[in-house]
Amino acid sequence: MKNAPARTPEITSVLVRTIAKLLFLPILVTAVAMLIKGYAQPGDGFSAGVVGALGILLQYLAFGRRTAERLPLVGFAGKGVFAGLLIALLVAATPVFLGQPVFTHYPPAGASVIYVGTIELITALLFDTAVFLMVMGFVLGGVQMIAQTIADEDEYRGPEATGPEFDASAGTDVEPSSGGGRR
C-alpha cells in the first residue's frame, strides 16, 4: 500500500475513468428527473438525492478527492444539509402563519397549478428539493469529512504511514487489520 488511491488517481484504469466521465451527466439528469417528476411518476427527493450523490461519488472513485471537489458546488456539500433543512422547515412552518396546519401544501388538491413546461409548481416540489439537498449534502459531506480527516492524519503521521485503509475515496475498506491484537 505504498500508493494510496486517494492521492494517486492514475491507479484507476482508463476504463473506469472513461465510464465515470460518460456517466456523469446522465446520472445527474436522471436525478433531477426523479426529483421533478416525483408527483406523476415514481421518484422523490430522497431517491433523487441518492442517485445524484452516487454520480458524484463515482467521480471521487475514478479521479480522486482533489479532482472531484473541483466540480462546482461539491465543496459546499456539508452546508447543503442545513440549507435543505431550513428550506424544509420553511415549507413546513409557513402554513402555520397562514392559519393552516403544518405541512399544508399549496396549491391545495383540485386547484389549478402553474406549469413551467410540464413541471407542476407546487410547494411539495420545494420540500422535495430540500430533501434532495439534505441527502446529497449528507452523503457527500460525510465522505468529504472522512477523507479530510484521513488526509490530516497522514500529514500528521508522515508519508510512511499510509494510515488506516478506511479511505472513503478509495471506495472500499480493506480489512481493518485487527489480527495484530490477538496473542
Partner: peptide, 24 residues
C-alpha cells in the same frame, strides 16, 4: 395565539435554531 401555533412553536424553534447553529 391559535392552538396550532402553540403546538408548533415549542418544536419548531429548536429545529430552526439547530439548523442554523450547526453552521456556527
Amino acid at each position: 395565539m391559535t392552538d396550532q401555533t402553540l403546538l408548533v412553536l415549542p418544536a419548531g424553534i429548536p429545529w430552526v435554531l439547530a439548523a442554523v447553529f450547526a453552521l456556527l
